[in-house]
Design a protein around this nucleic acid. Structure first.
Lengths: 208, 208
DNA sequence: AAACTATACGAACGGTCGTATTATTAGTTC
DNA sequence: GAACTAATAATACGACCGTTCGTATAGTTT
């Protein structure tokens, strides 16, 4: 895809521009609301030219999810992984997730919440990929918690605590978009902190 | 709507049949995936005849949400309100919500999760009604918790605890549909129980 | 310069969408 | 049974859907 000198081939520039717009549209109107004609019109290119890059609607949807996953990783996972393993990283994950949602990295809130619900009860490649991303994400939280447990900083069931934390993220995200109101983030932050505080092994320095 | 003798006018029978099917479709494919032509075909009636009952797509969507709200109330709220106010009712709410999701009262899982996300970032009457239903539901949980606090059975911040409980419900619902796996319900149940147990005033009999 | 590939274009396809208008049927009332 | 009303159907409309096609242009390779 990428040339040796770092420049992008003409086609890849287009593809990149398409996907950047596609993730924004899909975060608001879903992957079905993302129509090829609309996307082409908004970008000022031809529908057929755009279509040729993907070959099918489903391929466009999959490429859009992959692009969103990259953005998600850059905004949530990467910054949290700059913190050393342990309680600090668990806290950083929570903080960056809530910031990612609150700052509307995607205009419709968390891209994955939106489209995971959209495809939750269908079948097909998009559903399967979204299920995989969800599992990957839950595993990532659980791993971060396990690291803290292994270091003697937390005493908790990692899978159960991961379930709780993720539930707070999602509830805050939905409440904030549905009511255009940020109080959900404060509640989520407090619940995260309460759960972690209750699990902290005495003597462990606390990151908040 | 209803005749004095309890029978339904011909038109209301149709309307009822349409909405019963509509909520099922929408819980799987959303309120936009719910198309008038498809609905008519599945019911074996004419598109124009069906359309005449509602006058617009948006009216059909609103009527569908109202119908779903009734079903939701019958399956979650009413049974919980048969339990006396207090901790028992809070626990009953959680139990009936998880049963409602698990038993697929709507084939796509919780109708409101689905369509609330679908319309979360749009505007219009459907969004506003869904936001109102969400607030109504959160208030209902909070009220049930407040009743338990007032009776000296729980010591907790009602709004915060309501946020937590609802977050567990929603997370379990999504996980179960996305992965076709019921373990999320067990996690939710355990987290609900842990939160309530931690807030129970000593000496209070416990409903689980 | 010639040959080839990558990229984009406009036009058109069959289908489905929501909606409007007009007709037909079934039920009720006199 | 005629008149009237409510409910359903038939038909059609323009807009948009995803997709395919043939073609034109730009870039690269030989």
């Amino acid at each position: 895809m990428e040339k040796v000198d770092g420049r992008l081939a003409r086609g890849d520039q287009t593809r990149r521009a398409v996907l950047r717009r596609a993730v924004d549209i899909a975060s608001v109107d879903g992957l079905e609301g993302l129509s090829i004609g609309r996307l082409a019109t908004e970008l000022g290119i031809s529908k057929s030219g755009l279509f040729a890059h993907f070959g099918s609607k489903e391929e466009l949807q999959l490429a859009t999810v992959r692009a969103a996953r990259r953005i998600y990783a850059d905004n949530v996972v990467v910054p949290a992984y700059e913190i050393a393993p342990g309680l600090g990283r668990v806290w950083a994950l929570s903080k960056h997730w809530l910031d990612y949602s609150r700052s509307r990295v995607f205009p419709g809130g968390c891209f994955f919440q939106k489209v995971s619900h959209e495809f939750s009860a269908r079948d097909g490649a998009v559903h399967e990929y979204l299920a995989e991303v969800h599992r990957e994400w839950m595993d990532l939280i659980e791993t971060a918690i396990t690291e803290a447990v292994d270091r003697g900083e937390l005493a908790a069931d990692p899978a159960q605590l991961a379930f709780d934390l993720n539930a707070y993220y999602e509830a805050a995200n939905l409440a904030s978009i549905l009511h255009n109101d940020e109080t959900g983030y404060d509640r989520a932050r407090r619940s995260v902190q309460d759960r972690l505080a209750a699990a902290v092994v005495p003597g462990t320095p606390v990151p908040w």
